[in-house]
């Protein structure tokens, strides 16, 4: 809460804010307000959880990918997500938290992850739509986060963005192939766009006037653009892409504003947004159950690795 900031040593706080104003990064050993640390832990761990939970909807199609090339592409993408998750968990640990505690919060249902992964992947075209729209939206967010004030997070984002760009191209290429394929494939692509469009817009979070966390985040350059600004940027990029491959954005209110050069979009279903955030989306329970099952089923493996390492110290090096 804001009063926390005022209980911080005013001199150190002033130095901290001056440093950010000079566009210098904050590093793990630097002093930082408790609220800044907490915000970052919240954002970064949510991001890491999202990468890990995000493996599930796409992993759902690895065994059904329709060609060897697609199978390898999807497997590599999901593997990248595991890598991102690991990388961000490690970056989060620089803020003095333990990865295992963060994972426990996810499994207990007290930590959030991106709501988009609580929607089901029903057809192969969903794999294209996720790459194109979900990774596309993530890139818009992360390009901004790559300039965030906290050094380890910003650097993680630079690296992750490069891979996400590749994923987005891969997803768009899947959509392009389907949209230009048979009549059934085109319909499959359109259906996926219909289902993923609005949840993708929701990825940017509540409208600015309803976003309780944004003020401090902006001032401390944890974020540098508001939710609505980023959402608009994503819409502008994506509408043109949909048109290029002959797919229709499922929004009758969509129209181009000549003056602002923005594509104005219709009202997001905020009831749906909050319903999914609060745990009542189509797959919230399944996703957490799958993570818990993997964790529980792996308990004996982790115990074995620890027991082996303890027996063979210091020679053993165990993951």
């Amino acid at each position: 809460m804001p009063q926390n900031a005022t209980t911080d040593d005013p001199r150190r706080l002033a130095e901290f804010e001056a440093r950010i104003a000079r566009c210098k990064t904050i590093e793990p050993k630097d002093w930082m307000p408790e609220r800044y640390r907490k915000q970052l832990i919240r954002m970064m761990s949510q991001h890491a959880h999202s990468e890990v939970v995000g493996m599930l909807p796409e992993g759902n199609w690895i065994t059904r990918a329709p060609s060897l090339r697609r199978k390898m592409g999807l497997l590599a993408k999901v593997q990248d997500e595991a890598g991102h998750g690991l990388y961000i968990y490690c970056s989060t640990e620089t803020l003095g938290v333990d990865r295992n505690d963060l994972i426990q919060q996810l499994l207990a249902g007290t930590a959030k992850y991106s709501s988009i992964f609580n929607y089901p992947t029903l057809t192969w075209a969903d794999i294209g739509a996720i790459g194109w729209l979900v990774d596309g939206a993530a890139i818009v967010n992360q390009t901004m986060l790559a300039k965030a004030s906290y050094g380890p997070y910003a650097r993680a984002m630079v690296r992750i963005c490069k891979e996400e760009n590749f994923h987005k191209r891969q997803g768009f290429e899947i959509m392009t192939t389907l949209a230009g394929g048979t009549r059934e494939q085109h319909a499959m692509a359109q259906d996926a766009l219909d289902r993923w469009w609005w949840p993708s817009l929701m990825m940017f979070g509540p409208r600015d006037k309803d976003s309780p966390n944004s003020d401090d985040l902006l001032r401390w350059k944890v974020k540098q653009k508001t939710n609505d600004e980023l959402r608009q940027r994503f819409v502008n990029i994506t509408v043109a892409q949909a048109m290029a491959i002959d797919l229709t954005i499922p929004d009758p209110a969509l129209k181009y504003n000549e003056r602002t050069k923005d594509w104005e979009y219709g009202e997001i279903d905020w009831e749906e947004f909050w319903r999914v955030v609060r745990g009542n989306g189509p797959c919230n329970r399944e996703r957490l159950a799958a993570r818990r099952r993997a964790h529980d089923d792996g308990a004996w493996v982790r115990a074995a690795a620890e027991a082996y390492a303890a027996k063979h110290e210091p020679a053993a090096s165990v993951a």
């Binding site: 992993g59 497997l75 999901v78 595991a82 690991l86």
Partner: peptide, 18 residues
């Protein structure tokens, strides 16, 4: 590849996918 997303630790998800 059936393991992807369901491994005992994240490092093993990566290794098995690899």
């Amino acid at each position: 590849s059936e393991w992807c997303g369901h491994g005992p630790i994240l490092e093993e998800d990566i290794a098995m996918a690899n």
